[in-house]
Structure formats: C-alpha cells, structure tokens
C-alpha cells in the first residue's frame, strides 16, 4: 500500500513538474504574413498561455520582431533574420543588398542573434555570408543556421570563435549531431520540427545518449514557419514537456530553457 502511495505521489509530482516546466522556445518566427493574421497582443497571449517564458524570435521582415519586443519584452529575445520577406530563403546569399538591410537594422535595434538563415555548403563562401559572419563577430551575435554539417564547418572555419545554433540540428541523425557537438564547443543544437527524439513521450535511446553526452547543448523550438503554426505553440510546449519528463530533471530543465539562456548569455531563470 505504501509503495502504491509512493508511486502515486511520484506520478503526481512528475505531472506537476511537467506542467510547470518553463520553455525557452529557441526557434520562432513572426513574419509579415503572421503579423497580418495574428496581432502581437495575441502572440504574447499565446506565448504566456503556453508557458513559454522566453523565445528567440526572428521575422521576415524585421517588423514582426520589433512589434513583439514592444508587446512582450520580458519574453522576446530578438534575432535579426536577413530576409525582407519570407520568399528570400533560397536567394538571399546572392543578394548584396541584404548587407545594407542587416547593417541598417543592427544600427537601429538590439539583437542577440542573426538568423535563422538558410545556407548550405558553399553558400557560406559567398560575400554576403562572409559579411554576415563578420557582423556577428563585430556585434558578438549568435548565428542561427539552418545548414548542413558542411556549412557549419565553413562557418567555424571563417570564425572559429563563433557561437552557432544549428537549426533542426541539421536534420541529421543523432550520431552525426554528436560528432559535430564534439567537434565544436560553441555549437548548440535546436530540435525544432524534429519528431524523431521521442516515441509517444519516451525518449528514444540514440537521442537519450546524445542528451546525456551533451546535456548543455540541446534546446527546443516550435518553428512557426507558416502563420497558422502560431496556434501550434501551445501543443508544442505541451508535447515537449511530455518527452522531457522522461529525462532526468536536470537534463530536462537544461533542454527546456537553461541551455538557451546560457547560449544567449541571459540572466539565468530561478
């Protein structure tokens, strides 16, 4: 009987813990079409209702980010996305006018990161990307890269002290993510839009090994790549808490919010 009571108490505390676990959403966009459909007040409400205590927000164009900074300054950690509209993900690296756009914004606003940007393989060698990397160095900004492993290598080659958040962890297998994390101490890995790290709330063994080897390097993110997906933020936070509760508490808290705070050099949450 006592065992049953103890088990019940354990389940209750796990459930309460899962409910309370704050989330730092490290991959979120509030682009022009989202601004059109969902006002910043609504976005702030969604984030608060979802228990998202902090969010690394970027947008194409930058107006959405600035709107959210005004409406939810305690939540939003602004990142500068080098796109004037969402349609530039595949062409921006060949567009020299992007540099002027980014430099102008850097003069006018405060940011913690540049990204999320899309760049693969030799894209990193283009003058636009090289200048973006240089700007990150000059302004001490994190680079949030939706890239393959080769592009990540090239970023670190250009700027060995760079801090890089690898979006979607490159959509590569956990073994490959671990290789990259071993290779670069300033590389962090977001898990946005990946569903392979858990199976119905249970962390799969390959990912568990990755989280245990690098408890300080992973983080969660929703990726609101289409405006409708803002209505997924709450579901995402809930499902994230579910699989995180399958990890030791300290690792779960790190992935949920502490790693993003450390990566962005923010004041740690209590």
């Amino acid at each position: 009987m006592l065992r049953l009571i103890a088990l019940f108490s354990l389940l209750l505390s796990a459930s309460a813990y899962a409910e309370e676990l704050p989330i730092f959403d490290s991959h979120i966009h509030y682009s022009h079409d989202a601004v059109e459909f969902l006002p910043p007040e609504k976005i702030a409400e969604i984030l608060k209702k979802s228990g998202v205590k902090k969010a690394l927000v970027s947008s194409s164009d930058d107006r959405g980010t600035q709107l959210l900074v005004k409406h939810a300054p305690d939540i939003v950690v602004p990142a500068l996305r080098p796109y004037r509209k969402r349609g530039e993900t595949g062409s921006w690296m060949h567009d020299p006018t992007i540099i002027e756009y980014v430099e102008d914004l850097l003069k006018r606003h405060k940011y913690h990161a540049i990204g999320e940007f899309h760049a693969f393989d030799e894209d990193i060698e283009t003058p636009v990307l090289q200048r973006i990397i240089q700007l990150a160095k000059e302004h001490d900004l994190l680079l949030h890269a939706h890239s393959d492993a080769d592009a990540v290598d090239r970023i670190f080659k250009a700027y060995p002290e760079a801090r890089v958040l690898w979006a979607h962890s490159g959509f590569v297998r956990p073994e490959r993510v671990r290789e990259m994390l071993r290779k670069y101490k300033n590389l962090w890995a977001d898990l946005a839009f990946r569903s392979d790290h858990d199976d119905n709330g249970k962390v799969v063994p390959q990912w568990r090994e990755a989280f245990e080897e690098f408890p300080d390097r992973f983080m969660v993110g929703t990726d609101t790549f289409a405006p409708e997906r803002w209505l997924y933020v709450e579901d995402h936070a809930r499902t994230s808490r579910a699989w995180l509760s399958d990890l030791p508490k300290d690792i779960a808290e790190k992935i949920a919010f502490r790693n993003a705070e450390t990566m962005l050099r923010l004041q740690p949450s209590q």
């Binding site: 839009f193 990946r194 569903s195 119905n200 990726d223 289409a226 997906r229 579901d235």
Partner: peptide
C-alpha cells in the same frame, strides 16, 4: 501512428 510536428495542417 503518432502525431508528428509536420502533421499540423
């Protein structure tokens, strides 16, 4: 079957 992020929408 289980719900994946991609299934939304």
């Amino acid at each position: 079957v289980r719900a994946l992020h991609r299934n939304f929408g």
